[in-house]
Design a protein around this nucleic acid. Structure first.
Lengths: 340, 340
DNA sequence: ATGAAAGCGCTAACAT
DNA sequence: ATGTTAGCGCTTTCAT
C-alpha cells in the first residue's frame, strides 16, 4: 500500500481530465466509448479506488449505511436473529457498494441524545433500525428529522418505511395447524405487549380461534417476555388450566415451556402439543424437535438495505412497507411430525 | 436537522478564527483558557459536530475501525461468540469516539481480492480481524501491507498483534479438574486442527495428562469440527473405548456428545463425566448443566479495540500480544457440581 | 496565542 | 464529449 492514486493521476495516465475519469468511475453518460475503455483500463491496471472521504465531502453522501441496534436488543443478541439479519444486511451492502457502520447503544445513555449525536455526525446516508418498541422515541426523533431510515420490524405508523415478516399470519398458520390436528383447548404464551410483533402473533392466535368458532379462554393466554425463564413460568401457570395444545411465540420460551412440562411430568406432544416461533437452530435440537414458524431473517436484512437504497435514490415519497411471508416447519412437538 | 454548522460559523459566533475553533475541538494546546471556554460554550449551545468526511480528507485519518469477519466465521455466527465480541468492540469504539465498520465476507470471493478492495478504500484507520485460520492469506496480505491490524485470536507469528483467551491453560484447567475428580481414562473431542485454538486446547489436554503421568491413548482423542453433529459422531466413536470422562472443546460439540450418550443409554455424569468449553447460554440449559470453560469474550473485544487504538497512536513497534485467562465454571456434567 | 492560507481528492456546475 | 473551475469542511503549516 503505497501512496494512493488520485483522479488527477489516473487522468494523466489516460490522457484525459480528472472530470472525465470521474464520469467513468461514476458510470455517468457523456463519455465516448473509446475513451471510457482507455480510462477503465488504466483504473484496472493501477487498482485505483476513489477516496471515500473526498467523495463524501464533495458529493454530500457517504455511501455508508448505518445499522442501529439499541440497548434493548443486546439481550436478544444472544439468539441468532441479529447475526442472521446482519449477514443479510452486510451481503446487500457489499453488493451495492455501500459500507456498513454499526451503532450499538451499549450505554445507558438516553437513546435520543445518542441518536442525535450520531445523526449530526453525518456519517451515513441512511439508517436501518432494529428492535424498536411501541412508541420508541428513536423512531419519533427520526421521523421528525430528515434522516432517511427503514425500520426492520413492523411499525403501525404508515409513514414509516418498514420491512418485516408477517407475524400475524405466521401465528395464524401455527394455530390453524393445531386446530386441524384436532385440538380445541389451545393456549398461548405471548411475548411482551410492548413489542408489536408479540401483539400481532397474539392477534393471529385469536383470529385463528375466532375464525373456527372456538371460544378464547382468557386463562389460556399467558403474557410473557420472550425469555426461557418467562416461558417456564408461563407454562407452569397454564398447566393448571389443562390445555391440549399451546402456541408459544418464541423458541426461547418454548425451551422453558418444555422444561416446565418435563418437570411436571407432562409429555410433549402426547399430553400437550406445542407449536413454536422462530426456528432457531435450537428448535431442531430440542426434545422433542420443535414444530415452529420460520422467518426469512436474512432476506429481511437484504430487503431492508435494498429498500433503503431505493429511498436514498428515489425519495421516500410513497412509504415502503414490505411484509414477508413465513413458513411453518413441522417437526415433532405438535404431534404431527412423525411422517417418514 | 437543518444545515450542519461549520467550523467557520462557530468561529464567527465565538469571535475567533476557524483555526482556533479547530484547536479547541481537537484539544490542542495553545489556546487561552478564556477563549477556549467561549468557544466551548458556543459549541455546546449549537450542538456542533465536526464533519467526519472533511476531517478524514484533511487529516488523513477516518476515525473508523474496521471489523473483518470472513466467510468461515459465518457458520459460527449462530453461536453467541461473535455477538458478544461485537458488543465489546462497539462499546470500546463508542468510548474512544471511533466509528465501527463491519466487513463481512459473505460471498465466495477470493478473500485476498476482497481484502485488497477493502484496504484500498481507505475507509478505516485500522482493522480488527477475527476467525482466521492457520496460514490465512488475509493475514499474510495484511502483514505485507502497511495496514495496522489486531487479530482477535492467537497467532503464532510474533509480529502479529493479537489478543486472545488462553486456550491452552483453559483446557489444561478443565482436564486437571477431571483428574482431580479421580478420572484417568479421559477422552477429548477437539475442534478442527486448522484452527489454532483447537490445537492449543488439545495441547492443554495432552499436557495436563502428561504432567500427571497419565498415558495418552490415541483412541481417546477424537478430532471433530466444533459442530453439534460432529460432537455426536465423535462421541459415538469414543464410546467404544469406554472413557470415564471426556473433555469436549466446545459447548456446541458437547450438546451433540450429550445426545450421543443419551442415545446409547450412557448417563452423564454418572457413567461418563464431561467438561466443555465456551460457556454459551446453552451450557446452563443442557441436561445436565455443563461444567465448562468460560472465556472473557466481551473483554477480548474491548481489548482488541484498545490495543488497535494504542497502535494507531503510538506505532506498532513492539508487537502487542495479549493473552487473557479463562475461568472454569463448575456445574453438573463433571459430577462435582452438586455443591449446595 | 491567534489568524491566514494552502491544500486533502473529489463532485458538479459551467464552459467550450 | 470533454475540460475548467469552484467549492465541500476540515487540518496544518506558516505568519504575525
Amino acid at each position: 500500500m503505497t501512496a494512493a492514486l488520485t483522479l488527477e493521476q489516473i487522468g494523466e495516465l489516460a490522457g484525459v481530465s480528472r472530470s472525465t475519469v470521474s464520469r467513468v468511475v461514476n458510470e455517468q453518460p457523456g463519455v465516448k466509448a473509446e475513451v471510457r475503455e482507455r480510462v477503465l483500463k488504466v483504473i484496472a491496471e493501477t487498482g485505483y479506488q476513489p477516496n471515500p472521504a473526498a467523495r463524501s465531502l464533495a458529493g454530500q453522501r457517504t455511501r455508508i449505511i448505518g445499522l442501529v441496534i439499541p440497548e434493548t436488543a443486546q439481550i436478544l443478541f444472544t439468539d441468532p436473529y441479529f447475526p442472521r439479519l446482519i449477514q443479510g444486511i452486510a451481503q446487500a451492502c457489499n453488493a451495492s457498494d455501500y459500507a456498513l457502520s454499526l451503532f450499538l447503544f451499549h450505554t445507558t445513555d438516553d437513546e435520543v441524545a445518542l441518536s442525535k449525536r450520531i445523526a449530526q455526525k453525518q456519517l451515513f446516508d441512511g439508517l436501518l433500525i432494529t428492535a424498536t418498541y411501541i412508541g420508541d422515541p428513536l423512531v419519533e426523533y427520526l421521523l421528525s428529522s430528515d434522516i432517511r431510515f427503514v425500520q426492520l420490524g413492523y411499525n403501525d405508523n404508515p409513514q414509516v418505511n418498514c420491512v418485516d415478516a408477517d407475524n400475524f399470519s405466521g401465528a395464524y398458520q401455527a394455530v390453524v395447524h393445531l386446530i386441524r390436528l384436532g385440538f380445541r383447548r389451545i393456549a398461548t404464551i405471548t411475548g411482551p405487549m410492548s413489542n408489536l410483533a408479540a401483539v400481532h402473533r397474539k392477534d393471529g392466535y385469536l383470529q385463528a380461534l375466532g375464525d373456527r368458532g372456538i371460544l378464547v379462554e382468557d386463562d389460556l393466554v399467558a403474557t410473557s417476555d420472550y425469555t426461557q425463564e418467562g416461558g417456564y413460568q408461563a407454562m407452569t401457570d397454564l398447566l393448571q388450566h389443562k390445555p391440549e395444545a399451546v402456541f408459544v411465540a418464541s423458541d426461547a420460551m418454548s425451551l422453558g415451556a418444555l422444561r416446565a412440562m418435563r418437570d411436571h411430568g407432562v409429555s410433549v406432544p402426547d399430553d400437550i402439543a406445542l407449536v413454536s416461533y422462530d426456528d432457531l437452530p435450537l428448535a431442531l435440537l430440542a426434545e422433542p424437535a420443535l414444530t415452529t414458524v420460520r422467518q426469512p431473517i436474512k432476506r429481511l436484512g437484504i430487503l431492508g438495505v435494498e429498500t433503503l437504497i431505493d429511498i436514498l435514490r428515489n425519495g421516500a415519497k410513497p412509504p415502503r412497507r414490505i411484509i414477508l411471508p413465513t413458513e411453518l416447519v413441522v417437526r415433532d412437538s405438535c404431534g404431527a411430525g412423525r411422517r417418514s
